[in-house]
Amino acid sequence: MNQLLSKIARTLVTAVTFSAVAVAAHAEGVNGNVEAGKGKAEMCIGCHGIVGYQNSFPEIHKVPKIGGQSAAYIVSALTAYKSGERKHPSMRGIAGSLTEQDMADLAAFYESQAEGQAPETQPAASAAVAQLLEKGNCASCHGANFNKPLDPSYPKIAGQYPDYLYFALKAYTVEGNNVVGRANPIMAGMAKQFKNAELKELANYLGSLQGNMKTVPQSKFR
Results as ranks from 00 to 15, higher is better:
residue 2 N to C: 06
residue 3 Q to N: 09
residue 4 L to G: 07
residue 8 I to G: 07
residue 13 V to M: 14
residue 17 T to N: 15
residue 18 F to E: 13
residue 19 S to E: 14
residue 20 A to N: 15
residue 20 A to P: 07
residue 21 V to A: 14
residue 22 A to I: 10
residue 23 V to C: 12
residue 24 A to I: 12
residue 24 A to R: 15
residue 26 H to C: 11
residue 27 A to Q: 15
residue 32 G to E: 02
residue 38 K to W: 06
residue 38 K to Y: 08
residue 39 G to S: 09
residue 39 G to V: 06
residue 42 E to A: 15
residue 45 I to R: 13
residue 46 G to D: 13
residue 52 G to N: 03
residue 54 Q to W: 06
residue 58 P to F: 04
residue 62 K to G: 07
residue 70 S to V: 11
residue 71 A to E: 02
residue 73 Y to W: 15
residue 74 I to D: 01
residue 74 I to V: 15
residue 75 V to N: 03
residue 75 V to S: 14
residue 75 V to Q: 06
residue 76 S to W: 15
residue 80 A to Y: 13
residue 84 G to K: 01
residue 86 R to S: 12
residue 90 S to K: 10
residue 90 S to C: 08
residue 94 I to R: 09
residue 94 I to K: 11
residue 95 A to L: 00
residue 96 G to D: 05
residue 101 Q to D: 14
residue 103 M to C: 10
residue 103 M to Y: 03
residue 104 A to W: 02
residue 108 A to G: 05
residue 113 Q to N: 05
residue 114 A to F: 03
residue 118 A to V: 00
residue 125 A to K: 08
residue 127 A to K: 15
residue 133 L to S: 00
residue 135 K to F: 04
residue 137 N to M: 10
residue 137 N to G: 09
residue 138 C to G: 06
residue 139 A to E: 04
residue 140 S to N: 13
residue 142 H to G: 01
residue 142 H to A: 05
residue 143 G to I: 00
residue 144 A to P: 06
residue 151 D to F: 08
residue 154 Y to N: 05
residue 156 K to R: 06
residue 158 A to E: 01
residue 158 A to G: 01
residue 160 Q to I: 07
residue 163 D to C: 03
residue 164 Y to S: 00
residue 166 Y to W: 09
residue 168 A to L: 11
residue 170 K to H: 08
residue 171 A to P: 09
residue 173 T to M: 05
residue 174 V to P: 09
residue 174 V to W: 09
residue 176 G to Q: 06
residue 176 G to I: 02
residue 176 G to V: 05
residue 178 N to R: 10
residue 179 V to Y: 10
residue 181 G to N: 02
residue 181 G to Q: 08
residue 182 R to A: 03
residue 182 R to V: 02
residue 183 A to Q: 12
residue 187 M to C: 01
residue 187 M to R: 04
residue 190 M to N: 11
residue 190 M to I: 15
residue 192 K to F: 07
residue 197 A to T: 13
residue 198 E to K: 02
residue 199 L to W: 08
residue 201 E to Y: 07
residue 204 N to G: 05
residue 206 L to S: 01
residue 208 S to Y: 00
residue 209 L to F: 03
residue 209 L to V: 04
residue 212 N to Y: 06
residue 214 K to L: 02
residue 219 S to P: 12
residue 222 R to N: 12
